[in-house]
Amino acid sequence: MREEDRVTFGNTSVTTPDVPIDNNTNLDEIKELGKASIKTKKGNIHCLTVIGQIEGHMVLPPQNKTTKYEHVIPQLVAIEESEEIDGLLLILNTVGGDVEAGLAIAEMIASMSKPTVSLVLGGGHSIGVPMAVATRYCFIAPSATMTIHPIRLNGMVIGVPQTYEYFDRMQERVVQFVAKNSKISKDNFRKLMLKTGELANDVGTVLFGDEAVKHGLIDETGGLRDALKKLYELIEDDKKKKEGNAHNKASEELQ
């Protein structure tokens, strides 16, 4: 590198910290490219509501209210890819549904790079539990409940030990996902799942809002205000991190 280049580059890297590269970038873009992607100060969020049954491989009869996974999954792709959307708010009021579909949605949300916050209202039961914990931060309304119970057998059941083994493994998928994405331990979650004397005709546990927080399943009790505040905070943190990274990278290249 020539001596005079080093001097000029050295100067810019000293003066740039904390100052955005160009305050008029947005304005210039509109003028030059006709692109109107002006963002609000706080950022744009997308709200995804999951209600009723999670509909999976089978179309459910019309008396069920359903959330169709084949529609939600590409939506999540679009949200992740869209330049206009900065964060995702997931609102849950679900009675459960297809294991595969629910886990698919939960895995998609857990692997998103954009900030995600969930809010459980009313109920987030069964497969709704992994979906709630999949986001980066989760809230539950104090009056909301979450039912944790074992996966049930349906369809043709062959009375062999392997059947039990199979169901144990299916259940393990849910247990593992929840333990990985929340503060609850696998053992504690399994214990809640198999608890007796809580539900009228089943084993399992009903957790109220603050109980779910106490067990480490959910991060905090709260409502819409808290969820939105947290989401905007996460968006802000992400923006700062991105700017910091871009700055570090630029200064590394210059050295």
């Binding site: 009675v95 459960g96 549904g97 297809d98 294991v99 109920g123 069964s126 497969i127 039912t147 049930r152």
Partner: peptide, 10 residues
């Protein structure tokens, strides 16, 4: 398909 829901299968 495995249904994991509080609503009974029937």
């Amino acid at each position: 398909m495995i249904l994991y829901s509080i609503v009974p299968f029937e």
